[in-house]
Amino acid sequence: MPPASPVESLADESALLARLKAGDPGAYEQVVREMGGRMLAVARRILVDENESQDAVQDAFVSAFRNIAKFEGNSQIATWLHRITVNACLMRLRKKRRQDEVSLDALLPSFGADGHPAHAASPWRQSPTGDELAETRESIRAAIAKLPEHYRIVLVLRDIEALDTAQTAALLETTEAAVKIRLHRARQALRELLDSTFRDSSN
């Protein structure tokens, strides 16, 4: 999700921007220290691979500061950096050798000729709390990472990074209709991957 700016007020924000535009090294350092972690979290969600993620964040900051003169201050610095980071990640993702992708079909619901599901859906138990929570979240992140790239990226951009359909379509150079179809299938496939974990065994 696009991070909220750590800079407390609009006045602070415009003061910081002025220092960035003036090339103040202290301002660069402040931005890298305060916002770097959030940008790295974004990169890790998109790229998964740690080295690639760190390289993408470095690309993003270098590109952001190089183009600081073009930033008009009509969005928050954090929002602007978020967009640049997503772009830097997508550029790396495109360059990466395509891995052998598992077919999504096996993870989508199947239906008989009469439109009835092959397997009836069951309710899920409540998500765990306390000690179990961290472990559960880790397994959910692992499940997201298992989705075929083409679908995973749409789910991450739409549901996690909270970009809208039009923004996602533009970034991925595809149509809004294609983004919608891929998002829906990605969610269905993730649901299937999580089903065995969350299926309410008391039912």
Binding site: G36, A121, S127, R137, I144
Partner: peptide
């Protein structure tokens, strides 16, 4: 059930990746 678990899927994915809930995901080396 499918509609409910689909909604839960989206929510769980968001919570699992939310930086506030998982601060270690955003640690800057």
């Amino acid at each position: 059930n499918y509609v409910e678990t689909y909604r839960q899927t989206v929510r769980l994915a968001q919570e699992a990746c939310c930086p506030k809930a998982n601060p270690h995901l955003g640690k800057m080396p």
